[in-house]
């Protein structure tokens, strides 16, 4: 029972962290039709910015300033790099962000060194928040969860309740019409891209408290986040939330399951003695589960769980 409760909590928090990063990615895709390969890099920049700023200002101001810095970098990337490529088509934009991943990773290595930096956790987050049996649930996990929930609420309110949100949503569907109505669509694009980058930056700054801040960060989370937005449906914010939680919970619970595919077949009454893939323990493949899930979703429901457009 304790194991179940703690795994549930862990799965939800991990899912929320995934959501924090993927929300910006799916938002930008919904808006611009571009899957930003460099989104994981913004997450990494956020973590490094949080680390560097916290050394000057202390922890809490850094949590506010780091996302702003990343949003500014995002705006610059959109204005000076992506925008000029826009007229060459989406593929060219995708390739540009693909190249940026390498540039940003190498720059991080150049500026901060190839190893994880020493990023101490503030004392108020290091202590346990609650105790489940023998196992403590740490405060920083609760912190990640709270920030993610606040972010989702804020984003939802921004898009649904404000006039700016209305323009953004309109610009997704009919950029020409919105432009004809006198709105500067390219400016809206830049702001949305900056917002998406800022959200990834916030996630990075918050996650950097616990996860090692190193040049590998971008790659480690980047691919999983792609899976999240594809499973949730490209461009769908609620879809990203559902998919994040699904992946967070399934990978967390899979760790505790030592069964193999062969075991499953045997319980079904099939005497299976074949080795190979049928003898791999589920727990040892938990990292591959998101990719299985993604293939499954794409075959059964190609537009993703909550996606609208094919």
């Amino acid at each position: 029972m304790d194991y179940f409760v703690i795994s549930l909590l862990n799965g939800v928090v991990y899912g929320l962290l995934l959501f924090m990063v993927s929300s910006g990615l799916t938002l930008v895709f919904g808006m611009m039709g571009v899957l930003n390969f460099a989104h994981g890099s913004f997450y990494m920049i956020g973590a490094y910015a949080g680390y560097a700023i916290a050394r000057v200002t202390g922890f809490w101001p850094a949590m506010v300033l780091a996302p702003v810095v990343v949003a500014l970098i995002g705006a610059a990337v959109e204005r000076w790099l992506l925008e000029p490529v826009h007229r060459h088509g989406h593929a060219q934009e995708l390739l540009l962000t693909f190249g940026l991943v390498f540039v940003i990773e190498e720059l991080a290595k150049l500026l901060f060194g190839p190893f994880a930096v020493d990023n101490p956790m503030p004392a108020e987050l290091a202590r346990p928040a609650l105790q489940v049996g023998d196992i403590a649930f740490p405060a920083f996990k609760a912190f990640i969860g709270v920030v993610a929930a606040a972010m989702f609420a804020g984003l939802f309110a921004l898009l649904r309740l404000t006039r700016a949100g209305l323009v953004v949503r309109a610009a997704v569907h009919r950029p020409d019409m919105v432009s004809a109505l006198g709105h500067d669509v390219s400016r809206v694009f830049m702001l949305v891209f900056a917002l998406g980058a800022g959200l990834a930056g916030l996630a990075g700054a918050v996650a950097g408290v616990f996860y090692p801040v190193s040049p590998n960060m971008a790659h480690e989370l980047g691919v999983i986040v792609f899976v999240v937005v594809v499973v949730g449906g490209l461009g769908s914010l609620p879809g990203a939330l559902v998919a994040s939680l699904l992946i967070g919970l399934s990978t967390t619970f899979a760790v505790g399951i030592d069964a193999t595919l062969g075991d499953g077949l045997r319980t079904l009454g099939l005497a299976w003695t074949m080795g190979g893939i049928f003898d791999v323990r589920l727990s040892s493949m938990s990292g591959a589960i998101p990719f299985f899930l993604m293939l499954l979703i794409l075959l059964l429901r190609p537009s993703g769980l909550l996606g609208e457009r094919a």
């Binding site: 591959a288 794409l298 190609p302």
Partner: peptide, 20 residues
């Protein structure tokens, strides 16, 4: 089965699966 970005993502997922 899919084109565009979805296709790119499926190929990425397949190669990650093979890698794992």
């Amino acid at each position: 089965i899919r084109t565009g970005t979805y296709f790119a993502m499926i190929t990425l997922a397949i190669s990650e699966l093979v890698h794992s």
